[in-house]
Design a protein around this nucleic acid. Structure first.
Length: 132
DNA sequence: GAATTGACGGGGC
DNA sequence: AGCCCCGCCAATT
């Protein structure tokens, strides 16, 4: 069996992803930053890819995309799932991160679960500029 | 145990 | 904005 440490890391990643509310999205890098523990964006991708079908029904994996707002899985109906939750995409097929990006967990939750919060973003001001 | 691959990101140009 | 290169971590061969 795999090492317990790796198993715990994956479980922690799943726990964080479950905190992303419907209608919002996050990036692999952001999730990794919240989880901490040495993992990075690729680690998050590996964890989500390892989700069993049953687990995928519980963990909202579709809400995690790359830093450009682009769907990495393509063809798994991820975009359709997100649009059903209210996430808007531009003409280039990128989710509008300025409007739907998850700001990270509440400081209280993070401290209570051994996770980190995300640094302040100040680029969410252009949220009503895109019409494309 | 080395090499390869991939649901990634940052920085430079 | 785009494009390219490099570092990063985990799984697989």
């Amino acid at each position: 069996m795999e090492h317990a440490a790796t198993f715990a890391l994956y479980e922690k990643i799943f726990l964080v992803v479950e905190q992303i509310p419907a209608g919002m999205v996050s990036t692999y890098g952001d999730v990794a930053a919240v989880v901490g523990g040495g993992g990075d964006g690729r680690t998050v991708g590996a964890a989500l890819g390892a989700l069993s079908r049953e687990r995928a029904a519980v963990v909202p994996w579709q809400r995690v995309i790359n830093r450009e707002g682009v769907i990495s899985t393509g063809g798994m109906g991820q975009r359709t799932l997100l649009e059903a939750e209210g996430v808007a995409f531009d003409a280039q097929g990128r989710a509008i991160l300025a409007r739907h990006r998850w700001p990270g967990p509440a400081p209280e939750w993070a401290a209570d679960n051994g996770c980190h919060t995300l640094p302040e973003r100040e680029e969410g001001e252009q949220l009503s500029l895109d019409l494309a």
